[in-house]
Design a protein around this nucleic acid. Sequence first.
DNA 1: CGCGGTCAAGTGGCT
DNA 2: AGCCACTTGACCGCG
Length: 302
Amino acid sequence: MKIGYPCINRSVNCRGNRTFRLASYSPERFIDVCTANLDCLSQVLRYNVASGILFFRISSDIIPFASHPVLDVAWQEILGEKLGEIGRYIRANRIRISMHPDQFVVINSNRSDVVERSVRELEYHADFLGLLGLSEDARIQIHVGGVYGDRVGAMDRFISSYHELLDDRVRKYLSIENDDRCYCLADCLEISRKTGIPVIFDNFHHSLLNRGEPVSGAMASAAATWGGGCGLPMVDYSSQEPGKRPGVHAETIDTDDFSTFVETCSGLDFDIMLEIKDKEKSALQAIDCLSSDPRLITGVDS
DNA sequence: CGCGGTCAAGTGGCT
DNA sequence: AGCCACTTGACCGCG
């Protein structure tokens, strides 16, 4: 079991998600920002390894505007060597990597222009992981998309987009995650049966949108969609921020809730991405928590 | 130098 | 109809 956090480290004095406004695009600026982002990524990965954190989500902004038509720079070529170097570090230290394209990736949209942009964005993510030299145990996670008043039709559109529009380099890494509004775990499992896509279980979304499945069974059925070279199941974990609207992610980890969750999943091994706002701070607490709680059979990798 | 409006992109649900 | 939330706040013009 590995513990991770997304995109940003608040202890390291750099950012790996710098971007700029489209209006201020220039090739020089683009390369400068990418270079700084990749240097920061290296620093953050080193911090993580030193801290025993072996799971990390890389920001989709690491290469800003990567799939945008404004881009007249072959970033794959210019940054390829640097990416290869970072990838060697990742593999040497057995760091698990995920990426989470943002909400604009909707491959089941009923607008073909939206679908086309989504495919290009997924290809960017796949190229990025490919240049790192990562196997399919690195994952790109997306939500299923919109419903458009016709869930069955929209799910069918997702499946046909998957088969017809995504090439192997994208399919290799693609995973789907249950969300808190449109597509619950059961929907994702159904798509998984028809496509073979592994399902990332999000416990917090599941608590907000479900069909009554207890967490242990939900986890087991999501875990069963993982196999082959895809590695251990990935799980997104969060809890409710007290006093806020339902659905707001916690500022800091609730270690009781976290221990209960892991205990509920005993018998399964998996990697946990903490979607908690204070990032590496909670990851360190989670690792402590797993290492010190005798009720938890699963040990943490470090 | 700090503040705040706005930022490439979508969708659904809230008020 | 407009605003907000989402995996993540940061950029940049203005005073």
